[in-house]
Computed example of a mutant assay.
Amino acid sequence: MRNKLIEFKNVSFKYGEEQPWVLKNCSFEVYENEAIAIIGHNGSGKSTIAKLMNGLLFPQEGEIVINGQRVTEESIWEVRKEVGMVFQNPDNQFVGTTVQDDVAFGMENRGIPREIMINQIDKMLTAVGMQDYLMTEPHKLSGGQKQRVAIASVLAISPKVLILDEATAMLDPKGRKEIMKTVTEVQEEHQLSLITITHDLYEVVQAERVIVMNKGEVWDEATPRDIFAKKEELRKIGLDVPFVAILSDELKKAGIEMKREALNQEKLLEDLWTSHSEM
């Protein structure tokens, strides 16, 4: 049994007294070393959830607990040691004049000894494939390289949770896959909980569990396979379905027996091959 790491308990939030609720009575849990995707149409509350987890915002109703500690203005600095966040635009996170300075920044603020910092900088940049850019100025990096450095900077403070808030949205498909491959490897190596807030269906199908937001409420939560089996319901709330899942449905209609809901090309080919072999 994995322990609870994050708890949202009937959380509601709005950006001002006269504004509508962005989140309404929102409850869910995240467990240690779990990979979760949070999806929903624009305005469904996804990014607000990320900011609440990191204490950038505080709920008007309900409570949030991170690793057993309630998130309040008094506990916020302790909470931020547990939760690291990578945003859509990495330029908003850079504070150092070189890659090395940027990765060091968070550790310096925590008073980590220099010898540990040097080792940690090398370790984290190696983990994201950026060890050869130690003295490079961040503005000279490509979009994908900037995101790798942003991830290394967050990982350097050894959080228990890594949140990617649309972190691959500005990258091309190849760059997205490379970043997500790196993140998955880092998550497994460091036993992190990974929360991906995304519109990218490739990222969603990699998760263990998907939380679907709609109009500020948790619409559903289940495995990617179970979520994408609800194709018509998802379309009604403005969400896409993986092309492979649509193709799988069409094959079933054509009389080709499929054993399960295929979510990627490899699984679809495997199912087709198995079905053909058994005929």
Rank of each mutant, 00 (worst) to 15 (best):
S12Q: 11
F13R: 03
F13G: 00
K14L: 12
K14D: 02
C26W: 03
S27E: 05
E29I: 06
E32S: 12
A35D: 03
N42Q: 11
N42Y: 08
K46I: 05
K51V: 05
G55F: 00
L56V: 01
L56S: 03
L57G: 01
V65C: 05
N67P: 00
E73V: 04
S75K: 13
S75L: 05
T98L: 09
V99N: 04
D101V: 08
D102F: 02
G106I: 02
R114I: 08
I116E: 15
N119A: 15
Q120N: 11
I121T: 05
M124Y: 00
T126G: 10
E137S: 12
G143F: 01
G144A: 05
R148S: 04
E178L: 10
E178D: 14
I179M: 12
K181P: 04
K181V: 02
Q187D: 03
E188H: 11
E189V: 02
I211E: 01
V212M: 01
K215I: 06
A222I: 10
T223R: 07
T223C: 13
K230Q: 14
K230Y: 08
V244W: 06
L247V: 15
G255S: 08
A262P: 02
K267G: 11
L268R: 05
L269I: 11
L272P: 13
W273L: 11
T274V: 15
S275R: 09
S275E: 14
H276I: 14
M279K: 15
